[in-house]
Structures are given as structure tokens and as C-alpha cells.
Simulated assay, not measured.
Amino acid sequence: METAEITALTVVFFIAAVEICCFFVISKLRGRSYPLCVVMPVFAGDNELPQRLDYIGSLVEEGSVLAENILLIDYGGTAEQIELCRKFCNSHHAAEMILPEEMEKAMKNYLHFMV
């Protein structure tokens, strides 16, 4: 074999070895990543709620947030806001609408789910 062929094969084998090592390292790191719980209060005076929900939804859909659970907490939201939150919960299986008194129970369920 010529020197150019040997060099090319060496480079290809080196790149393949690095890719395999990175694959195993990244898969081990993913096993150690912890999912998040997104908590968002819903207040009557929040005029930007639709934009917030769209933003959270887009982050979850593109996979840039490892949110296992999205809790929308009703702190006296308007009827329109509550309906918007219900639609959001229907379209995102990880989302849940709760009342403030249910917060402790929801967080205990979430932590129990992770263990």
C-alpha cells in the first residue's frame, strides 16, 4: 500500500474509534441526566400566558427541555386562561392543571416517580 492509502485508513479508523467512544460516553451521561418538572402559575393578570404556553410547548416538542412533568397551577386564572390551559394539557401529555392545595401531592407523586 502507498503512504496516502495508509494515512487515509489510519484517519478513518481513528475517526471511527472516536465516534464509538463518544457514543458510549454520551449514552452514559444521558443515563445520569435528571428530568425536570416545569411549574408555571396561572394568574388572572398574566396577559402573556398564551406566549408562555407556546414557548414551553415548543421547547418540549423539539426536545430541548427534559421536562417529565408540566404543572400549571391555577391561582385565580380567568375562564379563558383556564380553557387555554386545558387545551394545552390535552395536547401535551406531560402537562397537568392543578390547584395550589394540590401542589404538595403533585410534587410527592413526581418525586416518587423518579425514585
Rank of each mutant, 00 (worst) to 15 (best):
C89R: 01
G77S: 01
R86Q: 15
E62Q: 14
E62S: 12
I20K: 14
V39Y: 04
L49G: 00
S58E: 13
V38I: 15
I73L: 08
S91K: 09
F13D: 02
Y110H: 07
F23M: 09
H93Y: 08
S64C: 14
E61C: 07
E104V: 05
I26H: 11
L84H: 06
D54M: 12
L71M: 07
N90G: 06
A95Y: 00
C85W: 00
I70N: 04
V60E: 03
S64Q: 15
R86K: 15
V38R: 07
M40W: 12
Q81R: 08
K108M: 10
E48G: 00
K108V: 10
S64Y: 12
C89P: 07
E102C: 02
E101S: 13
G77C: 03
H92E: 01
L72C: 07
L66R: 12
M103N: 04
T78P: 00
M107V: 15
N47W: 09
V38D: 02
R86C: 07
V11D: 07
Y75H: 13
A17Y: 03
V65W: 01
E96D: 06
D54W: 10
M107Y: 14
T10I: 07
E80C: 02
E104N: 02
I73M: 08
V18I: 12
F88N: 08
I56W: 05
A95K: 01
P50I: 03
L36I: 13
E68D: 09
F24T: 03
P35C: 03
E61W: 04
A106P: 03
I15T: 05
S27A: 10
D46G: 09
I56D: 01
E61H: 05
S91Q: 10
E62V: 14
K87M: 04
P41L: 08
T10R: 14
I98C: 07
R52E: 01
P50M: 03
K108H: 11
A44C: 07
Q81F: 07
M107I: 15
I98V: 09
F43P: 00
N69K: 15
P35A: 02
C21S: 08
